[in-house]
Design a binder for these strands. Structure first.
Lengths: 255, 255
DNA sequence: CAGTGGTCTAGACCACGTG
DNA sequence: ACGTGGTCTAGACCACTGC
């Protein structure tokens, strides 16, 4: 009898042809990722309870738990004891600064503001197209803005987005919007940024950058090139930022 | 009968007065951390098997597993299926660049070299003493070095270490040593760096920095101030690095 | 082959949040 | 009182490593 303990459980791969051979909880994780990507549960919403998911996938609660654990470790889901498990969102003070690594040298809470300089649809430059996995010549949205902290211009951002996913993004809509840009992308365009990679250099301020950031041309700035990804490691944003690090710094943790 | 399922298990806190009230696996984690800190298992060595630890602490294997899982997630331990669980070490190519975030703009593998400029014992400057939790006036080791990639001077490091923990560290011993500095700290002084925090700014090269890095005075450099911690979040190193980002960049991942 | 960590299950009880 | 996630246990089997 004991040898039949697991014989009535068919591998999930047999029930779902799309999942390759891998541990059950990895297959569950992949299925949950698909649902997130499809928008089955929106950012900020609760996903079904562990028990319900266990029933749906015909696995034990522990297996679902391990899948969710990994998604929570990646900040795609947020567990709240007694309440449920929620889809991460860029709205919410808690994670407001998840992708903003600029911090004041002292410890006061800066007042931040944003000014849109430009927002237009153009043919993707070759380097941007390559980074975004677009064919050269495809349309991208290009916007520029200045972020200020305590009324002091501190970040000059140059941003590119795939045109197809961001139809209807205009300088006007950006001006009206209050809050983090990634929040807007979530709510208005259904694009959740879940991960990003940055390359940082020190550069001399160009005349144009100096003008917007109110610094001397040639003074040292941080150049931060960011590539942001949505579910499934699909690149969805290129961002080149010039940071004034007079009273602020870029913080990072190694471990 | 069923209500006695756990009645023969006394909370670990009763057996170990030092552990405050918290989940069992957190108490186990704290005990493992103590053992690591004490040097009971050295970097690179295997710790006892999960089953053995479970026996030692009188808990189930699953509880030990969860404690180890968290330590592995923090990179303090490394699991190897079929072999055991090992104490993380800064020797080993695998994690060689755990704390070195500088990467070439193209993707070639650079040849690196180190030149020690200075190594002396001095009274800690006020800011360094504060960062290292030392009383002002205590002795620190101060060393300076240049790291080169492909024979090109790229990083000028200024490093401070608590004098008490690093007796016998001299320019001579540094010159003889090949490999990552944190590996030396581990083997020779029993100090494992497990985590670090960095603050990054862009600055203009001073005359002195320009001399060592072979750049024009005033050119833009990355200033990276690092505070490194050993077990128990005890700060053990301050490092101020000036990085030339002409052909290299500082890489980072956000998630 | 024995021993290690890795996966999976089933079920108990706890802690938290809400009604 | 109920449902959620959080902890803990016990035991099975799998996958990898090394003798």
């Amino acid at each position: 009898m004991s040898e039949s303990a697991t014989s009535d459980r068919a591998p999930l791969a047999e029930r779902n042809a799309s999942a390759a051979f891998s541990p059950l909880y990895q297959q569950i994780k992949a299925l949950l990722l698909q649902s997130l990507d499809r928008g089955e549960w929106k950012p900020g919403e609760a996903i079904p309870s562990e028990l319900e998911l266990a029933g749906r996938f015909q696995v034990s609660q522990g297996t679902v738990r391990k899948a969710i654990d990994e998604l929570a470790a990646d900040n795609l889901l947020i567990r709240r004891q007694g309440k449920g498990t929620f889809v991460a969102t860029h709205h919410e003070a808690r994670v407001r600064y998840r992708f903003l690594r600029m911090a004041p040298d002292d410890n006061h809470q800066p007042v931040s503001g944003s000014q849109i300089l430009e927002c237009r649809r153009i043919k993707a430059p070759a380097d941007i197209a390559r980074l975004l996995d677009l064919r050269s010549g495809e349309t991208v949205v290009n916007m520029r803005r200045v972020l200020s902290f305590d009324q002091v211009p501190t970040i000059l951002d140059d941003i590119w987005l795939p045109g197809a996913a961001f139809k209807g993004l205009t300088a006007d809509s950006l001006d009206r919007y209050r809050g983090p840009l990634y929040g807007l992308f979530e709510s208005e365009f259904g694009v959740s940024m879940v991960r990003a990679e940055e390359k940082i250099k020190a550069v001399a301020a160009s005349d144009d950058a100096a003008k917007w950031l109110l610094v001397q041309p040639g003074s040292a700035l941080l150049l931060v090139e960011r590539l942001s990804y949505t579910y499934g490691d699909r690149p969805m944003e290129v961002r080149r930022g010039l940071y004034v690090t007079e009273k602020f710094h870029y913080r990072n943790t190694l471990n």
